[in-house]
Design a protein around this nucleic acid. Structure first.
Lengths: 199, 199, 199, 199
DNA sequence: TCATAAACGAGACGGTACGTCTCGTCTTGTG
DNA sequence: CACAAGACGAGACGTACCGTCTCGTTTATGA
């Protein structure tokens, strides 16, 4: 290990500790994407990370918590908050980002795996709730900016709008299984924007 | 088992076979509600149904498929399609039914369990997709009636409206963990009805 | 497994259960002899018995208890009680049997393994104490017969004599490591017989 | 560690090195007495000695060798060789010392632990054999003195007598589990002294 | 006095084995 | 012939401990 050159992207190689942590999370994220939560074994994760099983258990007491960490690895930065100048534009971009994230084969499996895992352990569920609270708060900025610009009424419920925009997309992923396309994203935004009585 | 009297409501007692089938599904549904998918073991289901484990496996090859069947046991009839005379009223009632279904402790756990299970096996996912296709088709009637009444434009996408109404509710159940209330249901309907620029 | 012919000695092949039990104990006894208690793993035992590890654990909750059972497998019948007509002769034969049992390479390792295991778990120790109580009682017959024959005083402590005869032999096995020979057996018996002041 | 005052009795405080050595052996001996060999972990020993685990491993390559050293810590001086003037008296005192040593709760556990450990590693066994060779040689003095005094025949096998006296005591400790009392010690000596045909 | 070698603290790691849990299969009676 | 009863194979889980390794710090000691 000591002769290994630090990977690109590790700003501060710091020490073995950080390298191991990253390698394991990376491996877990990959396996989540490839085979899903249930079929991912801790031992496989360890092997792919070039690490021993016990090392994984030293840092993550259960498979569920390992999954929780691995989940946040990529999704934290994955969804930038758009700022196009108009609410509608922003919501459209946001919805399309979600589509890009969960509409692909791999992203779909990973996301479903994580959601499934959350149904398993309370702590993982809690972690996920925290993550989503954060994410919604970030996205709510879109609406808040619109309020400041005078586009939306000051009493507008920011979270409600965000949730209503992305809700149908996730619904398809987790329940109905129907395709998740950019068209869908656009139409949802249009519906939320103008209401169903428009035209 | 043999001394059990057929339950009221079983039109055709059919015989032991049917009694066993029902008892097992009932037990599975209960356990899904009580402990969730992962912590529900086939052996526990069998025990609660007063049946041996092998008997369960004779009819349902995997735990996932058993769960799929048990899931449909109660949800099939659980969501009647409202007919209040107006789209908005119907959507409101529909959303509230969903809230009543997944907003409670037990309902929440059962629903999450099933969603989790769906992430497990492809066939269970397929089953669930079928179930939802059916359900959406039923709910779409609300919109189609409105079109016939002239409330909505003939080109209105029925599924889109239904999905957008219930999407945020399920989003809270499966991802964000925030409370699922009647108020939420009403506000989502209002948003979808009038669009976010209203007032 | 089903095509395996029952081993000789299994009066009633009965069922798989008994075959498995025997095969596992046999395998355990062999491994105890070959590698000793510490280096014997339950998984190896299972593999040698042609059985899965969990099957072993189903019957024997711990490695210690498995060892306890395996130990009794062969030693129960291993030491017949001699009946030569005289106490001295009987004691000599008894001592020589012990030598034959623990003086060889394999017997030595197995016996030491078991004694070591007994130091591990209280229940194994208890099992071993029971076994030895039984064995001493059997051997005591030698002395009791002698008393009936008038060779020894009626107040003679049977156990004491047996223990004093075999004690030094086991002492060598478990503590001093010196060779355990027939000569030693004979001399111990002579000493116990005539006392150290003789000749 | 640095603020620790050297213990009373350490003739030559020497340095940290010696203090550490002693503290670790002491801790190991205590834990052997309290919980036995198997349940004693090197990490626990280190903690009790106020030392880090790696420090222990620097001096004793394996747990077995640590145990070997710890064992000799107390038993070396524990058994003085009696000199009462007569063989019988000496043997009686010797036997009673053994009883005092292994007849108590703690001594019993420690002794059994060590014997168990010896069954584990060859080198520990070798160490123990050496220790016992030494100890028997010391005890044999009892017999040799008696020969010089004319109490016993010059051909008397000293080791045999010592082994036969203490053998039954250790037999009870390691195998039969029956109580080890002073009465037993006395009777064994009487038996070895006069032979079983006496009275 | 100060430099330097040796020992130590801290803690992660590889590795082995343990004992547990559950799934889904298979065998053997039994009504 | 379906079922009860229950052992079994398979495989993952999470735990405990052993012994190793690295890195930085403290301690002893000799130039």
């Amino acid at each position: 290990m000591s002769d290994r050159t630090p990977r690109v992207g590790e700003q501060r190689p710091g020490g073995r500790a950080e390298r191991v942590r990253t390698a394991v999370l990376e491996a877990a994220a990959e396996l989540l994407t490839e085979v899903g939560y249930e079929k991912m074994s801790v031992e496989d994760v360890a092997a792919r990370a070039g690490v021993h099983k016990t090392t994984v258990y030293r840092r993550w007491p259960t498979k569920a918590e390992l999954t929780a960490d691995a989940a946040q690895l990529h999704s934290a930065d994955a969804v930038p908050i758009p700022d196009s100048g108009s609410v509608v534009g922003d919501l459209q971009l946001l919805a399309r980002e979600v589509v890009a994230n969960i509409g692909t084969e791999g992203g779909s499996r990973r996301s479903r795996s994580i959601a499934a895992a959350a149904a398993t352990s309370e702590e993982l569920a809690t972690a996920m709730h925290g993550f989503w609270a954060h994410r919604l708060a970030l996205s709510a900025v879109i609406v808040e900016r619109a309020i400041r610009r005078g586009e939306l009424a000051p009493t507008t419920d920011a979270n409600l709008i965000i949730e209503t925009v992305i809700g149908p997309l996730w619904l398809r992923l987790l329940l109905t299984g129907e395709p998740i396309t950019e068209d869908l994203a656009d139409e949802v935004v249009r519906l939320v924007t103008t209401g169903m009585f428009a035209d």
